[in-house]
Design a protein around this nucleic acid. Structure first.
Lengths: 196, 196
DNA sequence: AGTTGTTCTTAACATACATCAATGCACATA
DNA sequence: TATGTGCATTGATGTATGTTAAGAACAACT
């Protein structure tokens, strides 16, 4: 849990004595590649801080097709916030794309950390606003941009994920089929070749 | 500002004495139909609480096409949260679809109300989580559903807006052209006719 | 009342992306 | 070495949605 520790101390600016109190509450867990840690219908009981590895959150529609809502690699938190916050059944699956170590953060931890530390409260507020900003950009892209543009933006935003995540999952995140993404990539390769 | 008053007292559960302190801070403003109150590049200085009327927030892409991010009618708050919170230039336009009266809530108001009242803090947190939940559902729809399905869900979610907002704006919100929406509606009418 | 602009509809045509099916490749496992 | 499984690619074809253009209904403005 080194990453999580660093994260708490740095990003949320938690000092040592408070840190010692908080740290007792948290648990770590290993999630082998492919294992599911949240299913639709369940309430999302924890936030999952990714120490190492890679998670994904996704829905499955009536035709059995997956639609990826979020990826989460090192130092990201993956959670269905609505489910956790409102104590409602989730719509999402969360599973591990790679062997993953997560820190389990339960809602009490957040509450307690918020009471103890003003900077944690502040940090948490920032995280929520970042989430909103990020989602809004994604909505705007889905409304306005072609598959190619969306893919290019994805690469720029997540160069690391582009290498680690199978292409069919990236396609799912972009809202297109794997075949379409393959063609988009072919086109881009052609264009780049011409430029040089 | 009757709606806003009700809203503060009920939803955020602010008591009378605190309310009197807070209420001094706020201003109301009339926005004639068509007037723009936020442009890309500006920092969004206020949250706009809609007393009466109808606002919209939208982007304009490089081809000059509009993409509607949000509608806001009575008792809704319209704001570019990222811009306001992070003090960054916005990407959005906000304008009035109808003659509209808004209450201008500035960030200080939020801060102050949060200090005064625990229930306001709580309320504010709920509002953020609602926003996230709502955006996530919209992303999922854009990833997974056809134009027809998206339109049907829109009607169910916003029956009032369906009547008040011009169709071409609903099309923009759904991420399709006005022509396509017109065809979708025709199809739906046909289907419903057969049922009866 | 006439003019102008806006919204909605419809049709013919164009295109981006999906679907279906086949193939090759890498990698794991027997 | 053989064999299977998942992933990426490619081609042929289908379909939903976009584009362009025109007209009708209606509101707004003078």
């Amino acid at each position: 849990m080194q990453n999580f520790t660093k994260y708490l101390k740095a990003k949320a600016n938690i000092a040592e004595p408070e840190f010692q109190t908080l740290i007792k509450k948290i648990k770590v867990k290993h999630i082998p590649k492919g294992n599911v840690i949240l299913r639709p219908g369940e309430v999302c009981q924890h936030s999952f801080f990714v120490e190492s590895g890679l998670l994904r959150a996704y829905t499955v529609d009536t035709l059995g097709k997956e639609h990826i809502i979020q990826f989460g690699s090192e130092n990201w938190i993956v959670v269905d916030r609505s489910s956790t916050f409102f104590n409602e059944p989730s719509d999402l699956f969360i599973d591990a794309i790679e062997d993953t170590d997560v820190v389990l953060i339960d809602p009490q931890f957040i509450t307690q950390a918020s009471e103890i530390s003003a900077s944690f409260r502040k940090y948490n507020e920032i995280a929520l606003h970042n989430h909103i900003r990020h989602q809004q950009k994604r909505i705007n892209l889905l409304l306005s941009a072609s598959a190619e543009t969306r893919y290019i933006k994805f690469i720029k935003l997540y160069p690391d994920l582009t290498l680690r995540v199978p292409q069919w999952m990236i396609a799912s995140y972009l809202g297109i089929t794997p075949e379409s993404l393959s063609r988009v990539r072919k086109e881009l390769a052609k264009k780049n070749f011409k430029q040089n």
